[in-house]
Design a protein around this nucleic acid. Structure first.
Length: 585
RNA sequence: GCGGUGGUAGCUCAGGAGGAUAGAGCAACGGUUUUCUAAACCGUCGGUCGCGAGUUCGAGUCUCGCCCACCGCGCCA
């Protein structure tokens, strides 16, 4: 039996053919196939109702006519029925379940199937993008975690992905920082923790400038020197950035993040002239109060609220570098899609930016890539306000991850005290960091979410630990039995899923492709999280009901095969989210 | 003021381009282990989907109005 990875696409194609044969005009039918409530089957097509209306035909007979014209391959794979006013239900037959299990034995099998979606495309993903000279804090968490998961999803579905860390390494804060660096640098402190020292210096410089106009003048002069390419200031700036990136790297490693390029704002310093001239030359921008600005008369708000592309003092701002960045990504990377994984509070900025870029590109004969602001909500404390420490400071990402690992360590120690300490530490890092990542990803990204250690590491419900635990139990079966996973020779004896637990698990495995497609299409990893959680739930039910290591060789073979595939899909899925997995916990 | 996002069970949240009896988890209550990891599993209880109209075979989902919460709004990013 032929098994498609994208079963929904396959069913839609079959339905279109059948609908045409039943006399439905081609453009009038959107099959609308989706996974369905298990009570109704595995997939359902809702599109017949709308098509019937359009064609002026009674829906139920039309559905029956379409179903009657489905080919033998579909009938062989699915039990097809018409329900209610005209829903078409598809229930996978045991033979299809078995065929799917046999067809997907390795990560490559899954990857090959998924890679058709975006083959040949180039996507640039702009994420994380912290400011240099500052510690990464909780405000940087979501962009990093969501951006990484989306990058992996897009890459898995076939695109060439350029992960770009657009670091904020250029800005007015450097005047004060360099001023303080030259006068108050604490060498030993710098050696211990550079970012700590930079922050101290910045605060010091800022306070001095606020209270003393002379200092303010000097700081401004330092900035001018830096921007003019002064050797000493450039060297200080370079050192600050180098140390910053090295510090960020520690966080990225814990979160499983690796960028392809790190092109900060400074990279675009020599590319902003093209923006000024391009915008004014094409008539997109105008002059207002000494600044170069772009109004959008057709927009209710941006007709009066301009995008400032050049400040009245002649300097660039982030709108300028963002525009230069779009052009660079098009010309240098040949980007077809650019994603900005940035806080939703910046949605106005991106809307203006994209409008401006579109006009600029149109009038200069360039093809505009798909530009998308992948926004996300704020991490809140249990008081419903943005998460802060008791003292009201930003929660540093390093401290947050440390605490997660520490809490996980206490738990592992309680549950598995017999494990050696270094293993408990290693498990705690995976569980702790994974819990933070998963808590972030499992929620709809565009809404704010409440950060709760309790729920995150409580290990009940839709959490990383629940998933990792299910995985550890599967591995344990193979370990205890001294078995290979997968073992093609042993699996040859397997027959089709038979018990309710086996069938439910196999049916869920079948829907992995849909969860990946849905998560990627909507750039919402939480759909994949939900799927993995449900899969782990089906596995746990199966595990409780059906003993795997039994004497009957056929039963044992098919259950081992189910375990092996569940492991494969769980690991692949968690990998796409950026989580690591464990052998035992 | 203008604009954006949200309001679903006591709590935290899902709900795909309008589809079938609105789903999970936590909490509460009850049950399951001489058997592969009980960090688990099974069951019960729990809903005027903010309010009011409208669109239609059908609305948590679309339209309009209102209420509430959060966020953004010229030279920061």
């Amino acid at each position: 039996m032929r098994v498609a990875f994208d079963m929904i696409g396959e069913l839609e194609a079959a339905l279109r053919g059948a609908a045409a044969a039943a006399g439905v005009a081609d453009g009038d039918f959107m099959p609308g196939v989706r996974t369905s409530d298990p009570r109704h089957g595995d997939f359902q097509a809702n599109g017949v109702l709308a098509a019937a209306k359009k064609a002026g035909r009674p829906p139920r007979p039309l559905a029956e006519a379409i179903v009657a014209r489905l080919g033998p391959d579909v009938r062989e794979a699915f039990d097809v029925s018409v329900a209610g006013p005209g829903f078409v239900n598809f229930a996978a037959r045991p033979a299809l379940l078995l065929a799917w299990l046999r067809a997907h034995t390795s990560p490559d099998d899954l990857a090959r199937g998924a890679a058709a979606a975006h083959a040949g495309e180039t996507w640039v993903v702009d994420y994380s993008s912290p400011n240099s000279a500052k510690q990464m804090h909780v405000g940087h968490l979501r962009s990093a975690v969501i951006g990484e998961a989306i990058s992996r999803l897009v890459s898995f579905t076939g695109a060439r992905v350029v992960r770009d860390n657009h670091v904020g390494d250029w800005g007015t804060q450097y005047g004060k920082l360099i001023w303080a660096y030259k006068r108050h640098l604490d060498g030993p402190a710098l050696g211990r923790d550079p970012l700590e020292e930079f922050e101290r210096l910045y605060k010091l410089g800022n306070a001095a400038a606020e209270s003393d106009p002379a200092v303010m003048e000097e700081a401004r002069a330092e900035l001018v020197r830096l921007q003019a390419g002064d050797a000493a200031n450039t060297e200080i700036w370079r050192r600050i950035n180098e140390a910053s990136l090295a510090s960020f790297q520690g966080i990225y490693e814990r979160l499983g993040i690796r960028f392809d390029v790190t092109l900060g704002e400074s990279f675009y310093n020599d590319k902003v002239e093209a923006v000024y001239s391009g915008l004014s030359g094409s008539g997109v921008s105008s002059e207002s109060q000494g600044a170069q600005v772009v109004f959008h008369p057709e927009h209710p708000r941006f007709k009066t609220q301009p995008l400032i592309v050049r400040k009245s003092d002649g300097a660039a701002n982030y709108a300028t570098t963002d525009l230069a960045t779009i052009l660079y990504r098009c010309e240098h990377f040949r980007a077809g899609v650019i994603l900005y994984v940035v806080d939703k509070r910046q949605s106005d900025h991106f809307e203006q930016l994209f409008l401006t870029a579109r006009k600029w590109f149109e009038r200069t004969g360039r093809a505009l890539p798909r530009l998308e602001h992948v926004d996300f909500g704020t991490v809140l404390g249990e008081n419903g306000k943005p998460l802060r420490t008791r003292t009201g400071d930003n929660v540093r990402l390093r401290d947050l991850l440390d605490e997660a690992a520490e809490r996980a360590f206490d738990l592992v120690t309680k549950k598995s005290p017999e494990f050696p300490e270094d293993e408990r530490r290693a498990i705690a890092e995976v569980v702790g960091v994974g819990s933070v990542q998963y808590a972030d990803l499992s929620q709809n990204r565009s809404s704010d979410y409440v950060f709760s250690w309790e729920k995150m590491i409580s290990l009940e419900g839709n959490t990383a630990a629940y998933l990792l635990y299910a995985l550890a139990r599967i591995r344990s079966i193979f370990r205890k039995g001294g078995l290979e996973c997968p073992d093609p020779a042993a699996e040859a004896a397997a027959d089709a899923p038979a018990t309710p637990g086996e069938a439910a698990l196999a049916r869920k495995l079948l829907k992995f492709a849909d969860s990946v497609r849905l998560a990627t299409e909507t750039l919402s990893p939480h759909f994949l999280c939900l799927y993995l959680y449900e899969l782990a739930g089906e596995f746990s039910t199966f595990y409780g009901a059906d003993k795997v290591i039994v004497d009957d060789p056929v039963v044992r073979a098919r259950r081992l095969m189910l375990c092996s595939r569940t492991l494969l899909v769980m690991e692949t899925g968690l990998g796409l989210l950026g989580l690591r997995t464990l052998g035992r916990m």
